[in-house]
Design a protein around this nucleic acid. Structure first.
Lengths: 130, 130
DNA sequence: CTAGGACCTGACGTCGACGTCAGGGGCAAG
DNA sequence: CTTGCCCCTGACGTCGACGTCAGGTCCTAG
């Protein structure tokens, strides 16, 4: 496939794909004239890269994690990295859950104030202090 | 409290607090000589700001959400914003959970490959394609 | 053969949440 | 009074994941 098709299928920009290549995350073949030729699996790979970015991982971390997707083998270093990043993601999940609950509290209190006209305003601040 | 104390208690930099003020997120009193004087609740407020930033909200969103913490009342606009951001956070939570599970798959497959020497390498890529 | 879309390589621009440096004031202790 | 630490206001630097523009090439349809 050519770069435009991959971009469309994966839902990213052409520039992003060139950037991934710059970072060594997705290095395609080249046609005789120098155009990039991507394999079919590249699309899934791009989606996974996006997921990792969305999870707060940087190119460096992604670069250390990605090889095992097609290679299948895990270096000890890669294993470490995977566990570390999984822990990071897990921590982020917990923090995010707490924040969501705080938002829910605020929303709920907003409704109550609309309904019952609560007097003290400091309650929200106190509710957010875990 | 002075700025350094708040920074230490909230675990952020002094620069960050000045930045929050720039953004209108946390506007302290001033002493006669122009030094910032923060109320005690500022610390919790800063922590909440950090949580919101960590949840991917920008200053603009935080600015629209924060007032209700001490003010207690909800504009219709603020309510909209709260619901929207809650939805964003929730979506991010689900995406993050999926990514964590993918990471777990990769880790598990790494262990299996270490143990049993699986043949086909494409399985990882296929596992990540939801 | 030619138009026009897709592709190429640089290389500079962007945006947000600060970091950092420069240059100068405030204030409590000794 | 001066030492030393904290504070002040600009204002430029940073970093990552691209966006965007310039100037040129490729290739496919008509």
């Amino acid at each position: 496939m050519r770069i435009g098709e991959v971009a469309a299928l994966a839902g990213v920009s052409v520039r992003a794909l060139r950037y991934y290549e710059e970072q060594g995350l997705l290095v395609p073949e080249r046609s005789a004239s120098g155009q990039r030729r991507y394999s079919h699996e590249a699309v899934d790979r791009v989606r996974f890269i996006q997921d990792l970015y969305a999870a707060g991982l940087g190119s460096k971390a992604v670069l250390q994690i990605l090889p095992c997707m097609e290679h299948g083998g895990l270096t000890a270093e890669m294993h470490e990295r995977l566990l570390a990043e999984r822990a990071r993601v897990q921590a982020q999940l917990e923090a995010l859950t707490a924040t969501r609950d705080k938002l829910d509290d605020v929303i709920r209190m907003g409704r109550e104030n609309h309904a019952g006209q609560a007097r003290r305003a400091g309650q929200a601040a106190r509710a957010t202090a875990s």
